[in-house]
Write a protein that binds this DNA or RNA. Structure first.
Lengths: 158, 158
DNA sequence: GTACGATAGTCAACGTGGTTGACGAAATAG
DNA sequence: CTATTTCGTCAACCACGTTGACTATCGTAC
């Protein structure tokens, strides 16, 4: 028995990371719902972010998100349906359909950034700014690779 | 313009928390696959943990996991199919079907705990034990509430 | 200028995980 | 004994992911 009952069992660390993530995302969406964006799901903000100001194609979006072009296309469909994205034909290439953030989408994106900033300030108020900085630095050290993969539902489930 | 371009934008914090979580879970399952448990999905470990040594019912499992009894039942079905859980009739109540961890499930659970401990040690080696302790403490402070809700796919997607 | 390979998007089928609603069987309360 | 509650399951549905196949278009090579 190498380590019988460690004082800090390893399994709590992932749970705390998940709980921290979830707390931030839940707080964000509670606030977004209050500000007129109740349809925005956790995934959607990341997708909007990945589309970016310049727009993309479904295929490229899939590559950015680490998912298939088909999955990206379906997600775009849903965001188009709720008015956050739009598709326009690319005049220079009839195969491509540009995906662009609508004004409403841009509004949601801007508010998301603001709320995230405010939430981080709240963490800094409670924990101390240095602790939050250290937390980010440490996570950056340990999680270098998986920096932007958003296939969470399929990954976790599977 | 209250905060134009903050030095530490708020939106990276959740991404880092997610990336940290994901790194740990991916490392865990890579190791579990090596140790003879390739079928175990990220969700499954948490479900096994929630079933516990004494067993439960699907309804109670749903409550523990924060999902419906139907969803819990389906997940149990899948874990039964891969041999990690079993259902037995409750002799004292013909409505209930006890869900129990099989020996194979217990093996997976034991190995998971070991791997998580080892991964935490790796973090402590890289960051310093005090930093990891502080990270956990800080997260416990900020994420007190959502301590154990595992409806991740549905929550994140939705 | 035509033929061909690569690329963009879509359709279809499927798996996993979640939801709600309805229902039968069994326990429990009156 | 009847009424209510509880457990489990079935059925239908949605969100998100996958792979495979197919069309249309682009670009290149001949």
């Amino acid at each position: 028995m190498a380590t019988p009952e460690p004082a800090r069992p390893g399994f709590v660390l992932p749970l705390l990371l998940l709980a921290g993530f979830r707390t931030l995302i839940d707080d964000l969406h509670a606030e977004l719902a209050r500000q007129g964006h109740p349809e925005l799901r956790p995934l959607h903000g990341f997708v909007l972010q990945a589309v970016g100001a310049d727009g993309t194609t479904a295929t490229e979006l899939g590559q950015r998100l680490g998912i298939s072009k088909q999955a990206a296309g379906k997600t775009v469909d849903r965001l188009v349906a709720v008015g956050y994205l739009e598709r326009v034909d690319d005049p220079s290439d009839a195969r491509r359909r540009l995906v662009r953030v609508t004004p409403r989408g841009a509004d949601g994106l801007r508010r998301s950034a603001e709320v995230f900033d405010r939430l981080r300030e709240r963490w800094a108020d409670t924990l101390g700014a240095d602790r939050v900085d250290a937390l980010e630095d440490d996570l950056r050290t340990m999680a270098a690779a998986n920096w932007f993969r958003l296939d969470v539902p399929g990954w976790f489930g599977g």
